[in-house]
């Protein structure tokens, strides 16, 4: 079965300069009762997006028509807390294809990579710079080139290299699927089990 592919992304950015954004904020627990992967985008950042009376909170960036795009830029330790993959599904379903931060929580990062949502880690001062640039010009486009592991901001003449583990990079570039790979190892797994039982 093919996995999700990611090669090059060009987009404007949505800035969310808050640190330690946990997955309970990305998708509150009360919306986790669904049994499919679809439709979580509607509930993305539900309690920050809407006031208790259900009306959109105009202060929140997703309700600001000035900011659009498929790249979310967020403060450090993004995605901490609960392992819920629903957080990634919600971001993806809403339309995000990449998240940029200075560091991500481990489980969130794995979940993102497993769903074709690219977590892009950049140094803290570059992140600050990016927040400033986006604030100054919300229409500014950035370019993420996975093959060359480059984040480029042509308008600012900026290019930053980012790290990604080579295995996942290959999977995303080619749209390969982990489970297909694991299933191909069946013989080796059975041998491992036999040796372990000895």
């Amino acid at each position: 079965m093919p996995g999700v592919q990611f090669t090059i992304l060009e987009s404007t950015c949505v800035p969310l300069p808050v640190e330690n954004i946990d997955t309970d904020q990305i998708i509150p627990a009360r919306y986790l009762t669904a049994t499919s992967r679809e439709g979580f985008g509607e509930k993305l950042f539900r309690d920050w997006r809407y006031k208790p009376d259900g009306k959109p909170d105009k202060e929140f960036v997703l309700n600001n028509p000035g900011y659009k795009g498929s790249v979310l830029v967020a403060g450090r330790n993004f995605g901490c807390g609960s392992s819920r993959e629903h957080a990634v599904w919600a971001l993806y379903d809403y339309g995000f294809r990449a998240v940029i931060s200075s560091f991500f929580a481990d489980i969130f990062k794995n979940n993102a990579l497993n769903n074709g949502l690219l977590p892009v880690v950049i140094p803290p001062d570059t992140l600050e710079h990016l927040f400033m640039l986006v604030k100054k010009d919300p229409s500014m486009k950035i370019r993420i080139d996975l093959e060359h592991q480059l984040l480029e901001i042509p308008k600012a003449g900026l290019a930053v290299r980012f790290d990604i583990n080579p295995y996942k990079k290959e999977c995303l570039l080619k749209g390969l699927d982990d489970i297909d790979y694991l299933l191909s190892l069946k013989g080796e797994i059975e041998t491992f089990e036999k040796n372990k039982a000895k």
């Binding site: 794995n110 497993n114 769903n115 299933l183």
Partner: peptide, 22 residues
Amino acid sequence: FGIGTSEVEMVLASQCILQYRP
């Protein structure tokens, strides 16, 4: 350790998971 749903599927399918040594 905790895992996401895609990884739950990996374990159900193969009793294995792909992990980097922390």
